[in-house]
């Protein structure tokens, strides 16, 4: 692919993202028109008297922003894990982060709630969110501990360890379900399907403050990820501090995905398919791949959120939609020759 077509593709990607954000703001149970919003805005009436503007500001905007931030964060984490573990399947989800977070949330729901001993608020996190964060971050740190042992584990082995941890957490979830009261189950299971249907700006602010610095740090590692693509020895010979890169990536990704999972629950496949789809357009230089994936990830989750609102009357959980789109799309990508590249 020539430089010009590549630039055009990136420009198209950005345009698509802007279009999807706009669509996400206007489409919903009640479709809003730009004309109506403009008229209501010009009228200068308070929000209580301008229904369209009120929906836009109180519901659509925070929700769209959450989808954007979460999509950006998950995609960047996926991209980073794939580079670090040198494996196309490495994502927060396949490393078991989401399952661990869900386990934490289930535990908190059972032992917390009205009258439970585990009920608290901490920095705007409910006990459910705090425990989801703690368990999600714990999963990544556990994998990092295995990665940084003296006898180093091969990256593919680390991925297997992550998958196994995820399965362990899933069994834990089943056990907690068995212990739970039937009326608790509904809330729990809804949490497991993920959702960006927030109301108000509190989650937006938390996510923005949590994800932005992490994203900047990860983007700054792009050139190092390129080097790592040719193996740890080659990267080290070129002056990359591989141990520090590993520590940085694991810490930052654990914090970032921990926050995301705690706020919106598990949302799979975003970190898997978006970087791979983008890679086919931009090539594999992380300096281009990572920012492009960031934009595409945000756009993709906005699209999924529009579908979540429109697919059925009422809300479809977004985690279901990302999986239903993501799995077949990934199978399609797998059948393409490009993937033989990844044999290690």
């Amino acid at each position: 692919m020539t430089k010009a077509t590549r630039a055009a593709a990136v420009a198209g990607l950005i345009a698509l993202c802007v279009a999807l954000v706009a669509a996400s703001l206007l489409i919903g149970t009640e479709n809003l028109s730009l004309g109506r919003i403009y008229a209501e805005w010009r009228s200068g009436e308070p929000l209580s008297k301008t229904p369209a503007l009120s929906i836009l500001i109180n519901q659509r905007l925070p929700r769209t922003l959450v989808a954007l931030i979460v999509g950006c964060g998950l995609t960047l984490a996926g991209c980073s894990f794939q580079a670090l573990l040198r494996n196309p399947l490495a994502t927060p989800y396949t490393l078991g982060i989401d399952s661990f977070g869900a386990f934490g949330a289930y535990a908190a729901t059972i032992y917390g709630g009205t009258g439970g001993w585990l009920t608290f608020q901490f920095l705007g996190f409910s006990h459910v969110q705090a425990l989801a964060f703690a368990f999600a971050a714990f999963d990544v740190l556990l994998i990092y501990a295995m990665a940084s042992r003296k006898t180093r584990m091969a990256p593919s082995v680390l991925l297997l360890a992550g998958v196994t941890l995820g399965l362990l957490a899933s069994s834990g979830i089943l056990f907690l379900r068995y212990l739970a009261k039937p009326e608790q189950l509904i809330n729990m299971d809804r949490w497991l399907m993920g959702g960006v249907d927030v109301i108000g700006y509190e989650p937006v602010v938390t996510l923005f403050l949590g994800v932005t610095p992490c994203a900047i740090i990860l983007l700054a590692q792009a050139a190092k990820f390129d080097q790592l693509g040719f193996g740890e020895e080659m990267a080290a010979g070129r002056g990359v501090n591989v141990n520090r890169l590993q520590l940085t990536t694991f810490l930052v990704c654990s914090f970032m995905t921990g926050i995301i999972v705690s706020k919106v629950g598990p949302i799979g496949f975003v970190g898997l398919i978006v970087p791979h789809a983008v890679r086919t357009v931009t090539g594999s230089r992380h300096r281009i791949l990572m920012p492009a994936s960031l934009v595409a990830g945000g756009a993709f989750l906005c699209l999924c959120d529009i579908l979540a609102r429109k697919l059925m009357t009422g809300e479809t959980p977004i985690g279901i939609i990302t999986s239903l789109i993501g799995a077949p799309f990934f199978l399609y990508l797998l059948t393409r020759r490009r993937f033989t590249d990844w044999e290690t």
Partner: peptide, 30 residues
Amino acid sequence: FLPQLVNPVFSLSVFEVVCLGRYPHLGALG
């Protein structure tokens, strides 16, 4: 340093691969 075995995982053009060698001379953004 050129290792005995190099297994790249990303598909890059030959020119990009050679440009990767410039890493220690490049700025922070590479």
